[in-house]
Nucleic acid binder design. Structure first.
Lengths: 215, 215
DNA sequence: GACATCATGTAAGCGGTTACATGATTTC
DNA sequence: GAAATCATGTAACCGCTTACATGATGTC
């Protein structure tokens, strides 16, 4: 029996089918497609590289690498080191490369559906404007930091020569550009938001309660 | 014993402590702070309202509402309807309003850490540029649709009068503005990405393999 | 000796998705 | 009578986080 109902859920692109473990798996394959890496190094990149729009901690990375090897998408070898603990380097197999290629060109609706901070902003009408402005200022500096990191990563690449970048840097620079666009737009929004709050601050008597009730 | 190690994880703002069930809970409180609503209506809004930067399905909403009532942050009453099934309307309590106020002004580092599509773009150097451009075109139309919905929601609100908006609309319009800024920046990025790919297309022999290996 | 980096995990629990279930009413 | 909306859930599972564990090597 086919179940009816709730067509509005389907109509608006909700982040459905986003995962199914696919994305982490492919984020790992994508990086190992370029070079041989250890779980530790992959974790480090997830944590620190701007332009890598995914993240995972070591507790997730190591088991996933093992699973990918078991499935034949990766192979690994142990490298013995002096002055450091030994490590296991993973590299992609032909099967893995095939899987990666399929994934890259598969459908993927845009994300950005959930945002803690913007959910708070949604209630900025019912809190003290001055407090909101203070929170907004902190938020802006965090975005400024992010923008600076993206711009650092973009430096030394004249846009005229992008077609001659090697495969790895080409994609990386594209995502860095996305980061720059995003951060700049959010900083611009911070400006207008601050203006709106300032106007509201002026319109509200200074002694008003920090928690106004809804009209 | 204090555990050392991995300071780089802490240095770069990783989406830690983002949840702890707090955000869904407060997204519900925020909406019930404005008006009395049913679980069904809340679910509908999560699915369809631009400017509401959170989402949850009915399966998550109903149990969470029950939990919030149990904790005294909400109360509910059953409304009998003819021509429709009865429904339960929830409203916020003073305790709930207090909790909400605390949450709104609490810290929240920016999100946007994971993105399926941009993770694919990261590998755009190793796939056929023409295929990538096709995927990008689809992606762009989705963002155009989103932008249109945000702009619809923003219409009829002259920016000059924002300070006189009622509390609910003030916050909502702020988030709608954020959506507009975001979507426009992503559309602008799509333009440059398409240019980069076109340049790469011209630089690559047309008969090249759809899956180039990394140099 | 305290702390940091390098390197690799296990176990429990939470937030969220997928699949499934129920039933009344309205519209074509 | 088929399909859609309105209305409210339960059960299983997955992805991810939190907490914890281990141990070698290098640095102040």
């Amino acid at each position: 029996m086919i179940r009816p109902g709730a067509a509005f859920m389907v109509a608006n692109g909700i982040g459905r089918g986003q995962n199914r473990r696919v994305s982490l798996r492919c984020a790992l394959l994508a990086q190992l497609n370029v070079e041989e890496l250890s779980g530790y190094e992959l974790t480090r990149r997830f944590a620190g590289f701007p332009g890598l729009f995914w993240q995972a901690r070591s507790q997730q990375v190591y088991p996933e690498l093992a699973r990918l090897e078991e499935q034949g998408l990766l192979t690994s070898r142990v490298v013995e080191q002096q002055s450091r603990p030994d490590k296991r380097l993973y590299s992609i197999t032909d099967t893995g490369r095939k899987r990666l290629g399929d994934w890259i060109l598969s459908d993927s609706p845009p994300s950005f559906a959930k945002d803690d901070f913007l959910m708070k902003v949604w209630s900025y009408g019912v809190v003290d404007p001055a407090s909101a402005r203070r929170q907004l200022a902190v938020h802006r500096t965090l975005h400024e930091l992010r923008l600076a990191r993206f711009e650092d990563a973009a430096r030394e690449h004249a846009p005229a020569e992008v077609s001659h970048l090697d495969p790895r840097e080409f994609g990386e620079q594209l995502t860095v550009q996305a980061g720059i666009h995003l951060e700049r737009s959010l900083l611009a929004w911070c400006e207008t938001a601050d203006e709106w709050l300032r106007a509201r601050e002026d319109a509200t008597p200074p002694g008003a309660s920090p928690e106004e009730r809804s009209a």
